[in-house]
Computed example of a mutant assay.
Amino acid sequence: MILTPIPAADLPTAIAGFAAALSGHATALGAFRRIADTWPVRHGVDTPAQRADGVALAHAHGIGTLDEKPSASFMWDGSVIRTDVEATVIVHEVAHWLCAAPERRGLLEYGLGPGPETTLRAEARGQQALTFEQCMHEEQQTSLLGILWEAELGHPAILAFLEQNWMEGWERPTTTRFFIDHVETLHTAGLIDADGRPATVRTWADERRRRRRAA
């Protein structure tokens, strides 16, 4: 939920101001420009093609999927992502898998405890492996990585960026500092490159080429 909506007419000013505050932080600026370039929205929101992109992105990383609503049990049950959800949620779940330590990928909801879609909450709680603070940090990292993947796919990443409150109080130095810190953490972890692109873009591109040849 957006805490303080930015009117569409004011968004170009906010984007320009946010970008200006990132001067001197090349990776953060590159990442932000990729996100900002998805405004205005050109190709619709949560389209069948975007959902298919999310599923293909999961498969490109060797992640299993199941066309079922997460309300049946879990978003991630240690084996598959449930994909009868919005496209942005599918991409977010791929980012969760990428951010999770390998030893937690086999746990319910990545060992983070129940998420908003989880219905078997006690079971997910029973496999929670991180503290609340650690969960929140990983959720923030996942949020940003998922948004950068949306930008890479040509999805309306700016909408997720706003929805997940990365531009809340965009005029404040603390807002851009928060963004810079998370970009730098993703870069240090090898999850994005120095230009702010997801580090496994080649994996996705190779899978896309394979699918096109097979079609």
Score class of each variant (00 low, 15 high):
105 R>M: 14
157 A>K: 08
148 L>N: 07
123 E>K: 15
171 E>Q: 14
83 T>N: 07
167 M>P: 10
169 G>L: 09
148 L>K: 05
181 D>H: 03
169 G>R: 15
115 G>A: 14
83 T>P: 01
143 S>R: 10
102 P>L: 12
97 W>P: 05
81 I>H: 02
166 W>G: 09
151 A>R: 05
79 S>P: 00
176 T>K: 03
145 L>P: 06
162 L>K: 10
101 A>S: 12
183 V>K: 00
84 D>K: 12
191 L>F: 01
185 T>K: 00
131 T>M: 04
163 E>D: 14
123 E>Q: 15
177 R>F: 06
139 E>S: 07
143 S>C: 11
150 E>N: 11
161 F>K: 15
139 E>M: 07
125 R>Q: 11
93 E>K: 09
154 G>K: 11
163 E>G: 13
85 V>H: 00
140 Q>N: 07
129 A>G: 11
110 Y>I: 09
162 L>A: 05
106 G>L: 10
159 L>D: 10
128 Q>A: 14
94 V>F: 06
94 V>D: 03
95 A>C: 03
157 A>Q: 10
81 I>F: 07
95 A>D: 02
141 Q>Y: 01
159 L>Y: 01
91 V>L: 04
153 L>I: 08
92 H>G: 05
120 L>Q: 15
183 V>L: 01
106 G>K: 11
178 F>I: 00
157 A>Y: 01
125 R>Y: 12
137 H>F: 05
157 A>G: 12
144 L>A: 00
125 R>W: 12
150 E>Y: 04
128 Q>N: 12
167 M>D: 09
173 P>W: 09
89 V>G: 00
114 P>Y: 13
192 I>Q: 01
98 L>Q: 14
164 Q>M: 15
79 S>L: 08
190 G>E: 00
136 M>G: 00
192 I>N: 00
186 L>F: 04
103 E>C: 11
86 E>C: 03
166 W>A: 08
102 P>T: 07
177 R>P: 07
157 A>F: 02
120 L>G: 12
168 E>Y: 05
111 G>K: 08
88 T>Y: 11
109 E>M: 13
115 G>V: 13
124 A>E: 08
181 D>M: 01
88 T>L: 01
104 R>D: 13
185 T>M: 02
109 E>S: 06
114 P>F: 13
154 G>R: 08
96 H>K: 09
104 R>N: 14
122 A>I: 08
116 P>S: 15
115 G>E: 12
99 C>I: 15
150 E>S: 13
175 T>Y: 07
191 L>Y: 01
91 V>K: 06
